[in-house]
Design a protein around this nucleic acid. Structure first.
Lengths: 192, 192
DNA sequence: TTCATTTCTTGCCATATGGCAAGGTGATAT
DNA sequence: ATATCACCTTGCCATATGGCAAGAAATGAA
C-alpha cells in the first residue's frame, strides 16, 4: 500500500493514513492499449482516471466533422470530462489513449460517497477542478493574445512528451491552426 | 424572506426552508455604481456575488498592457474569479461594473462553512463551477471552429444586453478580434 | 449650448494563416 | 525487399483579420 501509485495523489499532507487507504482501495486498475477509447461522444462520463503511465488525448468533433484536440494528458494527470461527469450529460468529447496506458479508475457513485463523507477529498476535488478551469482559461486567453508560434512553444514547455505521442495534425487543432501552418512554424523554429 | 432575490438561487427544489434561510442570511447586499471595481488585478478574491440587477465585465491585462474581456455578467449570474477565490492566489483579472448594480456578496470563510456543512450547498456550488467550466470550454472551441462573425452572433444570443452595456472594443477583445474588425462585421450583419 | 473626450467607422495596405495538391519520408506488413 | 499507408513538408495563391490614421458620431462636462 505504501508504494501504491495513488499515494502520490492522496498523500499524507492532506489525508490521514486511514482516509487515503480508504480512498485508494476504491480505485480500479485499468490498462488501455494504444487507440482505445476511454470515453465516446454521446455517452455520459461515468468514470474518471489518474494516469500512472501513458499518454492520452481528448477531442471534440465540430459541426463539419473536424476533430479538434481539447487536451493532452500524461502520467500523474487526472483524465476527466468535468461537465459530463458532474452534470450527467452526454458528452461531445472523445477520450483516446495515444499509447498503452495504466490508469486508476473511479466511478461516479463512489466519487459521490467519498465527496460527501471526506472533507479533504472534496477540498482536493474542488482544487483539481479549479486547476483545470485555470488552465483552460489561460489557454483561452493565450489563443487571443499570442501568435500560433508562441502557443506552440508554450505547449512544448508544458507537455514535452507531445512530440513523441501526438501527430502534427492533432497538435495543430489544439493550437487552433492547420497542420500545414504548424509544419511551417516548426521549420521556422528549427532555423532559429 | 419569501421574496428575497436569492430565493431564486437557493430554491426549494434543492434546499429545505431552513437551509435556504440559513444560507441567504449570510449574504450581504452591496451596491456598485458604474465603473466601480469589484476585484483588482493582484488581489486575492475573497468574495463572490450574485447579480440582482446591473451588468458587469471581467477582463485580463496581457503582457503588452492590452485589456482582454474574459466574461460578461448580467442579472441572475454568479460573479466569481474561481481560481483566485479557491486557490487563494493573486488574480490576473479585473472585475468592473459596467452599470449601477445591486449584488449579494459572500466571503470565502463563510462559503467554506456552508460548503462543508450543507450537502445541497456543495452540490450546487460544484454544479455552478462545472457550468462555468463548460461555458468556457464551449467558447474556447468556438474560437477555433467558428469565424469571428459567428462568434459575435452567438454572443448576441447569449447576452443581448451586451449591446446597451459594452463598448465595441470590449466586445471585440472577448471575441479575439480588433474593434475595427468588429465594426466591419456589424456593418455586414446590418446589410444581411 | 459648446467644447472635449471617447467611441465608432472607413480606407488603404500588411500579415498570419488557410486551402489545396504534389511530392517526400518513414513505418509496417507481407 | 517491396508495397502500402499514414504522416509530414512545401509551393502557390486565397482569405480573414490586423495596423494605422483620418474623420464622423456620440457622449459627457462645463
Amino acid at each position: 500500500m505504501e508504494n501504491h501509485f495513488l499515494n502520490n495523489v492522496f498523500n499524507s499532507q492532506k489525508f490521514t493514513k486511514e482516509e487515503s487507504e480508504l480512498i485508494i482501495l476504491k480505485f480500479k486498475r485499468m490498462e488501455f492499449v494504444k487507440n482505445d477509447f476511454l470515453l465516446n461522444n454521446g455517452k455520459i462520463a461515468n468514470h474518471y482516471w489518474f494516469i500512472q503511465s501513458g499518454f492520452i488525448r481528448s477531442f471534440a468533433i465540430d459541426t463539419e466533422g473536424n476533430d479538434i484536440s481539447t487536451n493532452f494528458y500524461s502520467a500523474g494527470d487526472i483524465v476527466i470530462d468535468w461537465p459530463s461527469f458532474f452534470l450527467r450529460n452526454p458528452t461531445k468529447e472523445n477520450i483516446q489513449a495515444l499509447s498503452d496506458c495504466i490508469c486508476w479508475q473511479l466511478d461516479f457513485d463512489t466519487f459521490q460517497t467519498l465527496f460527501h463523507s471526506i472533507e479533504a477529498f472534496r477540498e482536493q476535488g474542488r482544487t483539481t477542478l479549479v486547476g483545470s478551469y485555470f488552465a483552460l482559461k489561460n489557454h483561452s486567453v493565450s489563443m487571443i493574445t499570442d501568435q500560433a508560434k508562441d502557443r506552440y512553444k508554450k505547449l512544448l514547455q508544458q507537455k514535452p512528451q507531445i512530440i513523441q505521442n501526438v501527430s502534427l495534425k492533432q497538435i495543430a487543432t489544439y493550437l487552433g491552426i492547420t497542420d500545414t501552418s504548424l509544419s511551417r512554424i516548426r521549420k521556422e523554429l528549427a532555423h532559429e
